[in-house]
Design a protein around this nucleic acid. Structure first.
Lengths: 349, 349
DNA sequence: ACGATCTGCACAATCGATGGTGCAAGCGCA
DNA sequence: TGCGCTTGCACCATCGATTGTGCAGATCGT
C-alpha cells in the first residue's frame, strides 16, 4: 500500500485500473451484476482498491442516497447497567445489519433530547431508537417533520411504535416477593413497604406504582401517600430521601422497592452509614438488575428487564412497519438474591 | 412549520428568501460576516429557515469540508462500569466541542477493532479514541494511511499519543492493601495472594502483575507462577479459574487481586456457591471500581481509575499535537470497602 | 450477410453545502 | 461628472459516489 497524502477515491482507482469511475463504483458497491460489469474487471478493480487501501467515502454515498447507514439511539445515561446493556444489544443488532450505531445520552433532559434528535437528523440517520424518552411527543414531531422512522423503547410514545417491558406485572411480582419475604417489625410505622425513585409521571414508574399499590391493597395493606416517594432518578435525591425516611421511621422500613439502579446507587450511599445488622429486619427490592448489586451485603430481589429482547423487538418493529401504532410488551424476570445472570454477552464481557 | 415530503435544503430556503443558496449557506453557517452579507438578510434567512425546520445536511457539509464533525471511540464493551463511565465522559467532552460521538465496542477482538476503525474512517471522523486496544500497531497503520489522528486510552500504543493510568502504582497500592488486611490462614498453600484476570501480554495487566510481584517480593513473599492467573477478561473464564483454584486450595486463598470488573463478575459467579462465612479469612481487591461492587457481602478494596481525567487528557493530547509521542499517566485512587464514590455525573446518573 | 439482441462499459447529472471569484449598485471625493 | 472604493450579493466549481442513459462492438439467428 503506497502512502498518499489524501485518501484514494474511485477516481484514483479508475485511473489505475483504466476504467471509469462509475465502473469502479459499481464494482466495489456490489452493483456490478446489474450493471453488466465483467467479473474480470471487477476483480482487477478490487485488487487495486485493496492495494490502495481504498474505502468508500460514506458521506458521499450518503449524500447521493439520502441515507447514511447510521442508526441513532438515545439513552438517558451510559453509566448504568440497564442502559449500557441496551447499548451493547443495540450495537450488536446494528452490526448484523451493516449499520453503524450512534448512541447518545440525554441525561434525561428534554432539551438535550431534542437537540440530539436534531443532530441525528442532520446526519441523516436511517432511524432512531429512543430509550427512556422524557418528551416523546416532541421527538415524534421532529422525526415526522424529517420523515424519519423512530421507535420508543422502555418508555412508550404516542406517535410511534414502542417496546416496553411489562412494568405493571414486574412491579406486582417484586412487591409480592417483598411482601412474602418481609420480616415483620413491632413498630407499625416501620412495618410497611416503601417505593422510592423514578418520576411519577413517567409511564414506566406510574405503571410500577400501580402494581405496587394493587398488590398491597389486595393484601389488605393499601399504601399511604407517604409510602410512595417518586423522587426522580438521580442518586443524590434518592440518598437524601431514604435518609429522611429512615430518620422519620427511626430505622429502615420493613421493605423497600427501589425503582431504578441509579436510585439504588443513592440508597446505597446512605446504607453505607448504617450499622451492620440494620438489614436483618428489612427486605430490599430493585427494579432493574445489576450483577454486583445482586450480591450485596444484604439480599436484594431484582427485576431484570430483558434489554436484549427489547432491542430485538424494536428492530423488528422498525423494520417491518405495521399499520397503526404498535406497543409491544416484553416480560421482565425476577432474579432472586445472590443469583448471577449471565447475559447474551457473557462470553465476551 | 409546513409539512414537506422531503427535508428543506438551502435551495428551498433561498427560493423563499429571494436569495442565492450560497447566501443562505453563509447566513446559516456563520460565515456571513466575512462574506459581507447584511444583517437584515441574515435575519430574514434565519427566520425562514426556522419556520421550515431547516437543519444542515451534515453529509453534504462533511463531503465539502472533508471532515464530519464526528469523533469516534472504541471501547472493549459497553456493559461495564469502567468503560461506560468513559463513554459518558467522552460524550460530554465531545458535546462541549460541538462534536458528535460515535462509540463502538470491539469485544476485545482485534479483527473487529480493525473493522471499526475502517468504518470510522469511511465516515470521515475527525479523530479516534481507542480504549483497551488489542492491536494498537494495526490501528496506527490504518489511521496513518487515512491521515487520521488518534489517541490511545487505557492501553498505550507505540505510534500515537497515549493516556493510561498508573497501573504499576495502582497495583502496588492494592497489593499492599490486601497484604495488610489479610487474615492469615494456618494452611500455607492458602495463605497467599493470588492475581486473577486480564491478559498477561496486555500492557496494563503486565504492569499490574509487576506491581503485584514487586510488593510481594519486597514483603519477602515472592509469588510463584501459580499465583498469577491471567485468564483473560471474560467472566466465564475467571469463574472457572477461581473455582479450580478454590478446589486446589481447599477453599478461598487469603487474598485475591481481581484484575477487572468483568473478571470480578465471573469470580462472583463462583462465590455465589460458597457457604456464607467463606470470606472471613479472605480479602478481595479489584482493579476497577463499581459502586455496587463496593458494597458486596464481603469487603472489597477497589482501585478507581479516573476515567474522566483519562478522557480529558486524551482530548488535550489530540487537540494540541505534541512533537513526538507522548504518554500521559493518570493516578488511580484506592477506594476502601463500602465507600461510595459519586462521579462527575452524580447529579444526573 | 444483415438486422436484432446482448455485453461491457463510459458519460454526465445529481445529492446539498461551501467558498473563490466576479460584478452591479451605491457612495465618497476631487 | 468621473474615478475608485466599498457593500452586498450571485454564479459556479467542487467534494466523492451513485445511477439513468447512451453507444460501440460482439454474438446470434435466419
Amino acid at each position: 500500500m503506497t502512502t498518499h497524502s489524501r485518501k484514494a477515491t474511485i477516481f484514483d482507482i479508475a485511473k489505475l485500473a483504466g476504467a471509469s469511475p462509475s465502473t469502479v463504483s459499481a464494482a466495489l458497491s456490489g452493483a456490478w451484476k446489474s450493471r453488466r460489469i465483467s467479473e474480470t474487471t471487477v476483480e482487477l478493480i478490487r485488487r487495486i482498491a485493496d492495494e490502495q487501501g481504498y474505502s468508500t467515502n460514506m458521506q458521499a454515498r450518503g449524500l447521493r442516497q439520502a441515507r447514511s447507514g447510521l442508526v441513532g439511539m438515545i439513552i438517558p445515561v451510559h453509566d448504568n447497567r440497564y442502559f449500557s446493556s441496551m447499548s451493547q444489544s443495540f450495537e450488536t443488532f446494528a452490526r448484523d445489519r451493516g449499520l453503524v450505531p450512534v448512541i447518545a445520552s440525554s441525561m434525561r433532559d428534554p432539551d438535550e433530547e431534542r437537540r440530539i434528535v436534531q443532530t441525528l437528523i442532520s446526519y441523516a440517520v436511517d432511524y432512531i431508537f429512543v430509550a427512556g424518552a422524557t418528551d416523546p411527543a416532541a421527538i415524534t414531531d421532529l422525526c415526522n417533520a424529517a420523515n424519519l422512522r423512530h421507535v420508543f423503547v422502555d418508555l412508550p410514545g404516542p406517535g410511534a411504535p414502542s417496546v416496553i417491558s411489562d412494568n405493571y406485572h414486574g412491579a406486582k411480582v417484586l412487591t409480592q416477593t417483598l411482601l412474602d419475604a418481609q420480616a415483620h417489625s413491632a413498630d407499625p410505622a416501620r412495618d410497611r413497604l416503601f417505593f422510592i425513585g423514578g418520576v411519577a409521571t413517567d409511564y414506566a414508574t406510574s405503571r410500577r406504582i400501580e402494581g405496587f399499590r394493587d398488590v398491597l391493597t389486595a393484601a389488605g395493606l393499601p399504601p399511604g401517600a407517604d409510602q410512595i416517594i417518586a423522587c426522580g432518578y438521580p442518586p443524590r435525591r434518592a440518598m437524601q430521601e431514604v435518609a429522611a425516611l429512615c430518620d422519620r421511621l427511626g430505622g429502615l422500613p420493613a421493605g423497600l422497592f427501589v425503582n431504578s439502579l441509579t436510585a439504588f446507587e443513592g440508597v446505597l450511599g446512605h446504607f453505607v452509614h448504617l450499622p451492620p445488622g440494620s438489614f436483618d429486619t428489612s427486605v430490599i427490592g430493585c427494579y432493574d438488575y445489576d450483577p454486583f448489586a445482586a450480591y450485596l451485603q444484604f439480599p436484594v430481589h431484582m427485576i431484570r428487564q430483558d434489554s436484549h429482547r427489547l432491542i430485538a423487538e424494536a428492530y423488528r418493529l422498525i423494520e417491518t412497519p405495521h399499520p397503526g401504532i404498535t406497543v409491544k410488551e416484553v416480560e421482565p424476570e425476577l432474579i432472586p438474591p445472590r443469583t448471577i445472570y449471565a447475559g447474551p454477552f457473557g462470553e465476551h464481557g
